[in-house]
Design a protein around this nucleic acid. Structure first.
Lengths: 201, 201
DNA sequence: TCCAAAAAGCTAACGGTTAGTGTTACGGTC
DNA sequence: GACCGTAACACTAACCGTTAGCTTTTTGGA
């Protein structure tokens, strides 16, 4: 990731990428359910066990950038300007992520996800993981003196915003509406009557 | 359910119950992962296919009262007193459900669930289903003129409250805190500056 | 009494996943 | 430059949840 990290790691990354690319291609060509793990492994020219040493499950092949997502969220909290309030920072990040998901190129993938119960379920549990990471980041911020419950609650609400906006007919408008609600929820948790911007519009 | 509904349905219900009881007993005795579907079927003295005609999956054996939960939630919306505000009604119901889950007799079951990734994942997707039912019930209430987005958002928040409170060290206190946030979020969605009770404490 | 249908059963398989066991290729060390 | 420990990969064979296909039993009503 940083510099040439040795041939071994480059080869490993290449293998991983080849598997992910092959899988996504086959899934989109023939449908997620119609493609077996053995098909993916054969087409990527690796053994099934190798595939599973790179990806924990069939579903994980589709959500390859899971970790990026998680990092971006926590960094939106930890790397924000020293005086920037929490919620608008999160809002910017969520908006960017939603736009990324609803971009034209991504629609076939999300259509596939929406059609597969297994993929939907996997995504849901991914979101919960992300919410927990986010909660940890919020709780760790010394500028915000929140209870554990408040941190976890806001984290869930923010992830909900992502999930709801992604599915909404007008994602931007939905995000507006939901974040107005989140602002209000956040405001009542601040011991000192902190303002965080526009609450009631 | 209503009156003696015929022998056939009674027998069917009995079979279902016997399977569920057997499964839960075995799971608690030996651990969820250590018990196979074939074990449950054999112990309940039914065929594997019969088991699957009553329960859609192994995980569903554990969440037998799924439907009750869903009904209680939607009825908390539809059956509330004509002038009772939405959020307190939901709060009462959630509190009752949380207490039910955190009662002494239920702890081994929830410990088992928390320890099994498969069960956690299943519960998460169950919650999403419940949130969607709840959203529908809220959207259908003529006394509340909400947007689709606001209904779905509040529904998610309420389900989050259940999930977070259930895991909190002090569920009642957590529920207080979270519902204060939900009240605030709800308040900003009301076109007419509706009050719904105590917002800022 | 008999029939249609629901419920339950049996067998055999499919597909994701893992354990067990080697084999190869690489990176650091002498 | 040879050497060794280890990480990556491969192969086989199985486990386990789940389903399809088909038969048998039970039940409610004609």
């Amino acid at each position: 990731m940083t510099v040439p990290p040795g041939r071994r790691e480059r080869k490993k990354a290449a293998t991983r990428q080849k598997i992910a690319d092959t899988a996504l291609r086959l899934f989109l060509e023939r449908g997620y359910d119609a493609v077996g793990i053995r098909d993916v492994a054969a087409e990527a020219d690796v053994a099934v066990t190798t595939l599973f040493s790179h990806f924990a499950s069939k579903e994980a092949l589709v959500f390859e950038q899971d970790d990026d997502f998680e990092q971006r969220l926590t960094q939106a909290v930890t790397d924000r300007a020293p005086d920037e309030p929490l919620i608008p920072a999160l809002r910017r990040e969520i908006q960017s992520l939603v736009r990324h998901c609803t971009a034209d190129g991504a629609t076939p993938i999300w259509r596939m996800i929406d059609e597969s119960p297994a993929l939907r379920e996997y995504e849901e549990s991914m979101r919960l993981r992300h919410a927990e990471s986010l909660a940890k980041a919020i709780a760790a911020d010394p500028d915000l003196s929140q209870t554990t419950t408040a941190s976890r609650t806001i984290a869930r609400f923010v992830i909900d915003a992502y999930s709801l906006a992604r599915e909404a007919p007008d994602p931007d408008a939905a995000l507006d509406e939901i974040f107005r609600m989140i602002e209000a929820a956040w405001a009542v948790t601040c011991p000192s009557g902190n303002f965080t911007g526009t609450v009631g519009q």
